[in-house]
Structures are given as structure tokens and as C-alpha cells.
Amino acid sequence: MERTEAAAPLTRPAAHAAGEGGLATPLISLRGAALAYGDRVLWRDLDLDVLPGEFLAVLGPNGSGKTSLLRVLLGRQPLTAGSVTVLGRAPRRGSSHIGYVPQQKSLPAHTMLRARDLVRLGMDGHRWGISLNPGAIGRRVDEILGSVGAMAYADVPVGKLSGGEQQRVRIAQALATDPRILLCDEPLLSLDLQSQRTVTTLVDQRRRSAETAVVFVTHEINPVLGLVDRVLYLAQGGFRIGTPDEVMTTSTLSQLYGTRVDVLRVRGRIVVVGAPDAATVHNHAGGPNGGGRP
């Protein structure tokens, strides 16, 4: 298995998160990490550090282990081999320091849970009993909804919101505990272009203002191309890590897939042609058949 990790310096907040005194301490660290289901290896020998304020996009065809990586970081899936630490310790479920935006799924129209209720669950849904300070929590919920531009529909049942509005609320829920790490699993799926821009802007604002590390699983790099510090591309049981210019190239992806893959840049967009997984071609090109689960 071939793998590379570029040594190029990070851009934007992660590059100077530690100030002038030295490098920042990674919030996420994997060493020799491997994940397999029986004889099927998703990835192995993965060494990766994610720094405060870094925006890491995770790309790859269906079944390459993108969502599984997030499950590892959430403490829901053990590694097959190697080690992982999140905020200096083994991953654990229910950490208030990690915000999680799950895959976009439209909620039924009859869902009566309000937007503010969903955000509040992100703050105290793991606790039993009555909140000790409901007034303070209510004010915090309003603050978070306001920060993502969702106060106008705070009391609207989430089932009646559009896909883009629901995703704003999910981001608000993920930010409810002021996390140091934000994990996003295909947050742009099924959203129109304007909603994609809204979601990516909200995520980028968070990492810039609070130096929150972002791990952003996506089937298309183009909506986040101008925001990403590095790309982790998973395919064929291997991976590549580097800046978009280093990873999204004909030579790099051809080596990773073990066959000819052409990477074209058309009017500032990246188009991948010839990848063995047909969905990957459509997804990176932003075509009508984009989507699918990782």
C-alpha cells in the first residue's frame, strides 16, 4: 500500500495557532492507525495530526472508510491496529468538547420538535432530570441560533424547515457546547448551492474565531476548496494527505487508485475523470448524480 503525507506548511489559523513559541499541540493524533472489517482493509498505517483551527477535508469513494474514521474519533468504533488520541486521551462517547454534524437526512414534516429544542438537546440531552439553570441554557440556545442565522425559525418544528435551514440548526446543535473539534459527515449532501455556501461559511467562521479543528467528510471538494488546509483522500485501502494542490492531481490519484485517473481544473473547479468508482466521478464534478454514502 502506498501512502504519503505532505510536509507543506499549513495555511490560515492552524499554521500559527501556537503563536511564536512553537507548533500547536494536535487535537487529534493517529499513529499507525488501521481499520478493517474482516479481510477488507479500509485503511492502515495512517499517521495524522489535526491542529487547532485546521480545516481537514476527507474525500474518497463510497466504502473507503470516511464515516468510519469519524466513528473512531467519536469513540464509537475501535481501531483494528495503531493508536488514536482526541484531546490528549483515548476517544470516548459523549464528549462535550466534540461537536458532530451527522449526515443530512430530511426530517418528516410531522416532526414537532422545534429548532430550539434540537439545539438544547445538544447542551443537556445527555443529562437526566431537570436542568439546574434553564434560564441560562435558554439564553445560550438563543445565542447559538443567532450565530448561525436561525433565530427567525427558532420556534418552528424542524420537520417544516428546508434542508438548508435544518442544516443550520444541526450546526447550531453541534456548537452548543463550544467544542474544540467539529466533525462533519457529508453536511452538504442534498443541499442547493446557496445552502452549501451557508454551511461552509458557518463552519469556516467557527474554526477561524475559536480555532476549532474541523474534520469535514464530503463527496465534493469544490464547495470547500478555498477553505481547506489539507485533504485526506481515502481509496483502495490506501490514502494520501496533503494540500489540495498536492493531492488532487492526476499523478497522485492515479497512483492511489492503481489506474489512470485524470484530474482537470475547469474555471476554478476540480473534475475527477476515470476513477473506478463511478460515483466519485460525478461527485467531484458536481454532477446531477452526486451523493451517496461514504
Rank of each mutant, 00 (worst) to 15 (best):
R3M: 11
L10V: 07
L10E: 08
L10F: 09
E20C: 00
G21S: 05
G22I: 05
P26K: 07
I28E: 08
R31E: 13
R31L: 09
L35R: 03
A36F: 09
V41M: 11
R44T: 06
D45V: 03
D45I: 02
L46C: 06
D47S: 10
L48N: 02
D49Y: 10
V50P: 09
L51R: 03
E54Q: 13
L56R: 01
L56Q: 06
A57D: 03
V58P: 03
V58C: 02
P61C: 06
G63R: 00
T67H: 11
S68N: 08
L73C: 14
L74E: 13
P78Y: 05
P78A: 07
L79I: 04
A81L: 05
A81T: 01
A81G: 08
S83G: 12
V84H: 06
T85Y: 02
V86H: 05
G88M: 08
R89Q: 11
A90C: 05
A90I: 01
P91G: 09
R93Q: 15
G94M: 14
S95Q: 11
I98V: 15
Y100E: 00
Q103K: 12
L107Q: 07
P108E: 06
L113R: 11
A115E: 12
A115T: 04
R116P: 10
R120P: 02
R120M: 15
G122K: 01
M123E: 03
D124L: 15
G129H: 12
S131N: 11
L132Q: 10
G135Q: 02
R140K: 03
V141N: 06
D142P: 00
E143C: 00
L145D: 03
G146Y: 00
G149S: 04
G149A: 05
M151K: 01
Y153R: 04
V156Y: 06
P157R: 10
P157T: 11
L161M: 11
S162E: 10
G164Y: 06
R170E: 14
A174K: 01
L175P: 00
A176P: 03
R180N: 05
L183G: 05
D185I: 09
L193A: 15
Q196C: 15
Q196E: 15
V199C: 11
V199H: 09
T200M: 13
T200A: 14
L202Q: 09
L202D: 08
D204C: 04
D204M: 01
Q205W: 01
A210K: 00
T212A: 05
T212N: 00
V214L: 03
V214M: 05
F216C: 07
T218P: 08
H219L: 12
E220W: 06
I221N: 08
I221Y: 10
I221G: 13
I221F: 04
V224W: 04
D229G: 09
R230Y: 13
V231L: 01
L232T: 02
L234V: 01
Q236K: 13
R240C: 12
P244W: 09
P244L: 11
V247H: 04
T250Q: 12
L253A: 15
G258W: 11
R260F: 04
L264D: 10
L264W: 13
R265D: 05
V266Y: 15
V266D: 15
I270P: 04
V272W: 12
V272K: 02
G274A: 03
T280H: 06
V281F: 00
A285F: 12
